[in-house]
């Protein structure tokens, strides 16, 4: 739920529809080619492509709704959530009287940001029941049920995984104390084997 088309395309939140379309076309072409690569590279490209297409569809659905005049204060709630003002977002949401699917979806995001995940799921389920054809709600609920609550999924799947070895710094730099201890253990072993206890 944290990723969206803007973060995937590395664009600012105020990017125009044209910029998003352009970014989508370029990244889609790139990932479509990469997904046939062998091994993990191909698998991760296929996953990324799937995420990209889902988020792009959600973005387009939102845009369509806005163009049809569907704005009822949810944009303001959404922008408060994006700014990290969760309490402000909650009080704005409380003032909206029309408790439709979008209202419950927004409430679920607020609970997600607070890490109240069972409450988040409750509202997401209501949103899906109220608007069963909405791709955004279905995708969010699916992600929650299939990924976030999955106890067997590889830990590396979550987050940015900056320490996996592909990050900006070398493997040894993240384990300085462990390396110190390794050096110390080896020194002690040498001491013991050569001259009894040090």
């Amino acid at each position: 739920m944290d990723s969206n088309i803007f973060t995937i395309l590395n664009l600012p939140y105020d990017a125009t529809e044209q910029e998003v379309d352009q970014g989508y076309t370029v990244l889609n072409a790139e990932l479509s080619e990469k997904r046939f690569a062998s091994g993990e590279e191909g698998n991760s490209a296929a996953r990324a492509l799937n995420d990209l297409n889902t988020e792009y569809r959600i973005y387009k659905d939102d845009l369509k709704r806005k163009k049809q005049g569907g704005s009822t204060g949810f944009e303001a709630v959404d922008s408060q959530i994006k700014l990290g003002n969760i309490d402000a977002a909650q009080s704005m949401l409380d003032q909206i009287m029309d408790r439709n699917g979008e209202w419950h979806y927004m409430q679920s995001i607020i609970f997600y940001k607070r890490d109240w995940i069972t409450e988040c799921r409750k509202h997401l389920t209501i949103a899906v029941n109220l608007e069963p054809t909405n791709a955004k709600y279905k995708s969010a609920l699916q992600k929650l049920d299939m990924v976030m609550s999955n106890g067997h999924i590889e830990a590396q799947y979550f987050g940015n995984n900056r320490q996996s070895g592909n990050g900006s710094y070398a493997r040894g730099q993240q384990d300085m104390l462990c390396n110190c201890m390794l050096g110390y253990c080896l020194a002690q072993l040498c001491c013991r084997s050569s001259a009894g206890r040090c």
């Binding site: 999955n150 987050g159 900056r162």
Partner: peptide
């Protein structure tokens, strides 16, 4: 999984 996600987003230098 939320712990793992937050952990994977952090940078560590000493005891990763």
């Amino acid at each position: 999984n939320r712990c793992i996600e937050a952990f994977n987003n952090l940078d560590f230098y000493q005891s990763y």
